[in-house]
Design a protein around this nucleic acid. Structure first.
Lengths: 251, 251
DNA sequence: TGAGCAAAAATTGTATACATTAATTATTGA
DNA sequence: TCAATAATTAATGTATACAATTTTTGCTCA
């Protein structure tokens, strides 16, 4: 992987609860604890719906309940946990419909981010990261077939590409919202849903076209390309959720 | 105003810090305090950028720092406050560009919500609320001119219409995100930016058309109508920000 | 045996004391 | 007089004790 891309990733090792140097660098215990619990949840340490007991977490993490409570509140506001007054926090359950809906939302948000990035232009650093990601992806695909081990590598490429566009939109709120969408299972850019060679190559070609459109400042084309790009991933996901139609949220 | 609409509004009186029956009903102090501080900020009690000292707030509200801290964290995650580690919370400043960007985002989110509402259909109660709002708006506009006192009334109508569509999208995340957009100054549905008769009438006609499209389950037309509807409000806002182009965020 | 209820335990919510960091003021030196 | 720095003040961060609520347990009674 190009050094530029791996730098841009921040490379948070999935140190589930083992206080990585990363977490230790956080300015307060509350933030560090939030990072550690988040990583733990995303790596699947807790079942969906599982309660997170404040005392147990505080003992396990070696801090008092205060920073734990603060961290849990943060994670709930990120959409990772559910909160009920006097009953604490639990890992959020996602209905299939919510996962699909999150893709609908992301389709709109990412295409908007791409339009704004095209309108506002890229910095030199951002161009370098994207070009690195595109080159890395080209290299992975040059083999004409994909191994399971390429999943992580291409996941990083995919993440770097999209994340840099989010940053280039120069709109913090947009980045925050896209991050919320990504806390939904199977919706992270690191997770490449369908991993067949032709699918991945097609999506990588999309990346090239989107980047070209951004460089040419063709905001409308960039927006539409990204919309189709994300929407096609959603379609793939829906198809992969077996044959049955996505279940609708009850009420 | 029709009873149905005013019911649907929940009518949170702007009781800046006076613990309304509403806040008192909250299950925990943290939540009640958050409600009271939020109302206080939105009613303009604090300058943008003003620090919110935990001790002063806790004294003023008659609670300890614990629920105040929890409330401040909530408000920061809503986008109303800014947080810096070891330096506390302050009222978020919005650049003009951020206000405009929030409208761009809302345009996408609200049009998506409208499409989903059309696809998924309305409950009887939702139809009743919207029809009430439309009738109330018709009544206000029947006079062929608007007084300043109509601002609040039409604001309520506007809010009821949009809020019901958000609910009908059956997508909590979408509602949350639209709420984040509305914490941006001048971006609440209650705030009717331009209040000239012809402008308001045009927008109210939009409401009628959007509702028709939803009833007919014409998802694409409903989406596009809402997109244009919100975008036109944005355009009006940009025009009203005097002649100069909206300032771009630095960096 | 099971439903209903009461007591106990466990868990979250709040207050407060202390620790740590940032901001302010005072002091020293040139 | 001003700049740099030390001492002080004030603010936030954390730990812990207590209060209120929820959940569990075990009992009673039909």
């Amino acid at each position: 992987m190009s050094a530029i891309v791996s730098d841009a990733l921040g490379e948070t090792a999935p140190d589930s609860f083992g206080e990585g140097a990363d977490a230790e660098r956080a300015p307060t215990r509350s933030l560090s604890v939030a990072d550690r619990i988040r990583a733990s949840i995303l790596s699947g340490d807790f079942e969906p719906g599982a309660r997170l007991h404040e005392v147990r977490l505080s003992e396990r993490l070696g801090v008092s309940r205060t920073p734990v409570r603060s961290a849990l509140q943060s994670l709930a506001s990120e959409g990772l946990l559910e909160y009920a007054p006097n009953r604490g926090y639990s890992v959020r359950r996602f209905l299939t419909s919510e996962i699909v809906d999150a893709y609908e939302i992301r389709t709109m948000l990412e295409s908007l981010a791409t339009r704004l990035a095209a309108e506002r232009g890229l910095t030199d650093a951002e161009r370098a990261v994207i070009e690195g990601a595109l080159a890395d992806g080209d290299a992975i695909l040059a083999k004409e077939e994909l191994e399971e081990s390429d999943r992580i590598g291409y996941g990083a490429v995919n993440f770097a590409f999209h994340d840099t566009i989010h940053a280039a939109s120069r709109c913090r709120m947009l980045g925050d919202m896209i991050r919320m969408c990504q806390s939904v299972p199977q919706s992270s850019h690191r997770n490449v849903v369908s991993f067949e060679y032709l699918e991945v190559r097609r999506r990588h070609e999309d990346h090239h076209r989107i980047y070209d459109a951004i460089l040419l400042r063709d905001a409308y084309r960039a927006e539409m390309l990204m919309r189709e790009h994300v929407a096609s991933v959603k379609t793939g996901l829906v198809r992969s959720i077996s044959g049955r139609a996505p279940t609708r949220s009850r009420r």
